[in-house]
């Protein structure tokens, strides 16, 4: 399946003139880009191209040095990550960041946090509203586990899962926040072929839910298979963007990758 069914619509995310500097190092250099709604948008580039930095800026983990990020018409550049999560952007991490000592189900229940509201008093006094909310959190979390195919290990301590399942669980946790945009940072890293295939299906399933997916990935086969659009970053700048097939043919992109390979 390629991006043939892709139809441009209003951008869900708009990044313009984005700069990110760390001391003397510039990680992002004047990046401007728009992501349309309900697509799978891949972000590729050699190591150190600024892909994860871009994700960190969008999800609020980093405040950009300059430039603006607009999500659903709301400026989100530089605001706290938890508020961006509430606004509807979820993410996973390059190195799995689960709550390892919590069960699989509890991890996904954490994902319900921004969509629920009871606080210390309601919880401590066990007010009726909080009790029904807690039940709802559990049942919704189970639905997301079901969707991700992890319902079988709901009670397992998440840190003991094999890496492949941990990565899927992290996606399920992110989905449970009911995002409009989900950022997946190298979801296929460390997965075998079969797991990668399943992951591809899961990501397409997410798109079918109406969630826009942004995906940093090194696995070119996966990207060519599932993504609708590809953005190529190189030394913090936009090198190229377009449909996967175009990117494949793009001379500059090929050169950038070959150059990077030489250095390694």
């Amino acid at each position: 399946m390629t991006g043939t069914d892709f139809q441009p619509s209003a951008p869900i995310l708009k990044v313009s003139g984005l700069w990110m500097k760390f001391g003397g190092v510039t990680a992002l250099r004047d990046v401007s880009y728009e992501v349309p709604e309900k697509v799978i948008q891949a972000v590729i580039g050699p190591n150190g191209a600024g892909k994860t930095t871009l994700f960190n800026c969008i999800s609020g983990m980093l405040g950009p040095s300059e430039g603006s990020i607009t999500f659903l018409g709301q400026a989100i550049g530089g605001i706290a990550p938890h508020r961006i999560a509430v606004a509807g952007v979820a993410r996973t991490f390059q190195h799995v960041a689960l709550f390892k000592k919590m069960s699989v189900l509890e991890n996904v229940m954490m994902g319900r946090h921004p969509r629920t509201g009871s606080g210390f008093l309601a919880a401590g006094l066990r007010l009726p509203g909080m009790r029904s909310e807690e039940k709802l959190i559990r049942s919704r979390a189970l639905e997301y586990l079901e969707f991700a195919g992890l319902a079988g290990c709901a009670g397992v301590e998440s840190g003991t899962l094999p890496l492949g399942k941990q990565k899927i669980l992290e996606i399920a946790r992110a989905l449970a926040t009911e995002p409009r945009l989900i950022l997946l940072d190298e979801p296929a890293g460390g997965l075998n072929m079969k797991e990668t295939e399943d992951l591809g299906e899961l990501i397409q399933g997410i798109k079918k839910l109406g969630v826009t997916v942004m995906l940093v990935e090194h696995d070119m086969n996966l990207i060519m298979d599932i993504s609708d659009r590809v953005l190529v970053l190189h030394y913090g700048e936009v090198l190229a963007s377009g449909a996967p097939a175009e990117i494949k043919e793009n001379g500059a992109v090929v050169e950038a990758y070959l150059g990077a390979e030489d250095e390694e």
Binding site: F93, M102, F120
Partner: peptide, 27 residues
């Protein structure tokens, strides 16, 4: 009761991984 609730889970989440807790909307 606090610990066995949304709030308690959030506290444990903060202890385990603050970044991840923020990413799922925990202030």
């Amino acid at each position: 009761h606090v610990l066995h609730s949304r709030v308690g889970r959030a506290l444990r989440a903060i202890h385990e991984d603050e970044r991840a807790a923020e990413s799922v909307g925990v202030p």
